[in-house]
């Protein structure tokens, strides 16, 4: 092993695990959620968190911001929220000489970590304001393009129960999220731990693991260098193609209940996540098991079920599970 690469890889693993453990101080029993959020952070993706209110989604993002020492902002999406409320707007500024000029006032989107709380409550027009920011990492206001700070991570939340007065995210916007993570309700023991930590006099304190954003960006570069051979990449392609009902490799559930399969972004998400999983496993190459590990989070929001599937209560997770069973790692 070369001397120059080994410390960087070791640093990545150490940093990742430390952030994980720091977040676990505040977030109880959501280890897979924490890991998925960190994977998204180091791959440059965004995460859609789905769960009922009160499960610590906001706490999760705030804790992450504290641990990685990144700028954190939060937007509560409401039906009357306007795009300018997100990206910012030009206001008239009068200087000491009385001259008036337009000056751009940045919106809350200009942060490293953005929590879009209850994103499905805003109108599609407002939701689409996030599209450019999430994909291109910049916003355009008044014909002027404004670059977003890097790293830029959007953590959007949505409530799966209340559907009245909501605007479900369009497929195009869903596709821009690297992962869709389901935040489950804590178990009995986990609930006890939450109560102990939040109702006592001494609340846990999160330490900074990463000093600045540059360190996060440097670790991102390491992730993308992990080698991946074609045979392993073929597995990711197979999984994505198997979600398409018209594909020969489609599984029975996919053929029956899926309207649209995963997009190529799904395959990208699988590969990028797999590289991080490989590094975390102490390897320097991607294996098929790494790809399978992130399949549910990377593909579940990219599979659109048909009416029959919705009517029969099928979920995209069932389709993915069958695909993984048919195509073992």
């Amino acid at each position: 092993m070369t001397d120059s690469l080994e410390p960087r890889l070791a640093q990545f693993r150490t940093t990742f695990r430390r952030i994980q453990s720091e977040m676990a101080k505040m977030i109880v029993g959501q280890d897979d959620v924490i890991e998925s959020v960190l994977v998204a952070l180091f791959t440059g993706g965004h995460v859609l968190l789905e769960g009922v209110p009160g499960l610590g989604k906001t706490m999760l993002v705030r804790t992450l911001g504290e641990a990685v020492n990144l700028q954190f902002s939060r937007i509560q999406f409401t039906p009357d929220l306007m795009p300018a409320d997100i990206v910012g707007t030009n206001i008239i500024h009068e200087d000491e000489h009385g001259r008036r000029t337009f000056q751009f006032r940045a919106g809350p989107v200009f942060a490293n970590l953005l929590l879009a709380d209850e994103i499905n409550r805003a109108t599609p027009k407002t939701q689409s304001a996030l599209l450019e920011a999430m994909q291109e990492a910049h916003v355009t206001v008044g014909g002027v393009r404004h670059e977003l700070p890097q790293p830029f991570l959007v953590l959007a939340t949505q409530n799966p129960l209340e559907m009245e007065g909501t605007y479900p995210l369009p497929e195009a916007q869903l596709d821009r999220f690297l992962f869709k993570v389901k935040v489950r309700f804590p178990s009995n023991e986990e609930l006890h731990s939450i109560l102990d930590r939040t109702t006592s006099a001494h609340s846990p304190r999160v330490e900074k693991v990463v000093n600045d954003a540059a360190e996060v960006l440097a670790l991102r570069d390491v992730v993308r260098q992990v080698p991946l051979v074609r045979e392993v990449q073929e597995h990711a392609v197979k999984l994505v193609l198997a979600t398409h009902p018209e594909d020969p490799g489609a599984t029975p559930l996919a053929k029956k209940y899926v309207r649209y399969g995963a997009s190529p972004r799904g395959a990208q998400a699988l590969i990028l996540a797999a590289k991080i999983y490989a590094l975390l496993d102490g390897r320097y190459h991607v294996a098929k098991t790494d790809i399978a590990k992130g399949a549910h989070a990377a593909l579940r929001h990219r599979i659109i079920l048909n009416f029959e599937g919705e009517a029969e209560g099928r979920t995209s997770d069932e389709v993915i599970a069958e695909i993984l069973h048919v195509n073992p790692a």
Binding site: P227, V229, R230, E231, V232, D281, H285, A287, T289
Partner: peptide, 17 residues
């Protein structure tokens, strides 16, 4: 963990990074 397939492909490369 697909080590041998990966190793074979990487070993076949003339210029490995």
């Amino acid at each position: 963990r697909d080590r041998f397939v990966t190793a074979l492909r990487l070993a076949e490369k003339s210029h490995a990074d």
